Simulated assay, not measured.
Amino acid sequence: MERWDFDNWAESYDEDVTAEDWIHKDYWKVLKLVAERVKGLVLDVGCGTGNILRFLNSESYVGVEPSAGMRERFREKHGFEPLDSHFLALPLQDGVADTVITTYAFHHVPNEEKEDAIKEMLRVLKPWGRSLSPT
């Protein structure tokens, strides 16, 4: 079992993030603030169940999620499934995303892999693009 057990958490994730505990305080406000700053094609790394789509246009959105349980829950909610991948191997060509976001996910990347994860996000970001992460 992977360390965080996201597959099993997927069933209660949406309820859990609205609990307003210390880590999820102002959860919807944070997602809305991030969504207000995006432009063009948005890549959402570690997209979970796709809650940010409450504030974004799904036609200019690509989600990436390593957890099969989270991807399934995302599909049930939104009618399409995010890509099966993670921070260190984004399944996109170089320089295609106008904006790269990650909300409530980057802290799960081990410290020794954070630099490589940032490089990978920058690889898929257009040279004039934006990278946003509130967490």
Rank of each mutant, 00 (worst) to 15 (best):
K32A: 12
Y27A: 04
V30L: 12
D16G: 00
L33S: 15
D5G: 01
R73M: 15
H24Q: 00
F74K: 06
W28N: 03
L92K: 09
V96N: 01
L83K: 13
H108A: 07
L41H: 09
V42Y: 10
G46I: 02
G46P: 03
F74L: 12
Y27M: 05
A97F: 08
V64P: 04
E15W: 09
W28S: 04
R3T: 12
P82T: 05
F80N: 02
V64T: 09
A105T: 03
P82D: 07
E36D: 14
S67W: 00
L92W: 11
D26T: 05
R130C: 10
K77W: 11
E11I: 11
G79A: 08
T99N: 08
V100P: 03
P66Q: 01
L33C: 14
F80Y: 10
W4T: 02
V45Y: 07
E2Q: 11
K32Y: 10
T135M: 10
V45N: 03
F55V: 07
D16H: 08
D21F: 04
E59M: 08
R73V: 15
E2D: 15
L43N: 00
L31K: 03
C47V: 10
R123V: 05
K29E: 14
N51Y: 06
N51M: 10
S85A: 15
G79C: 09
A89C: 13
K25S: 09
R73Q: 15
G46L: 02
A89N: 15
E36L: 12
D84P: 02
I52R: 03
M121W: 06
S12K: 10
A105F: 09
R73E: 15
T103D: 11
N111F: 04
D26K: 12
F74I: 11
S85P: 10
V96G: 02
V100R: 01
L43D: 00
K25A: 11
D14F: 11
S12H: 06
H78P: 07
I118N: 00
A105M: 09
R54C: 03
V62I: 15
W4D: 04
S133P: 00
V45A: 07
G50S: 06
G40M: 06
Y13K: 01
R123I: 09
F74E: 06
E59V: 02
L90N: 04
V17S: 03
G79Y: 07
A35Y: 05
T49L: 11
D5L: 05
V62P: 09
G40P: 04
Y13C: 03
S58G: 03
G50C: 08
K119R: 14
A35I: 08
W28D: 10
E115C: 02
D5Y: 01
F55N: 04
T102L: 08
G46S: 02
E15C: 07
L31T: 03
P91H: 13
K29M: 12
L33F: 14
A89Q: 14
G63I: 06
L125C: 01
G79N: 06
P110G: 06
L88G: 08
E76H: 12
D94A: 11
S67H: 01
E76W: 12
T135F: 14
A10T: 06
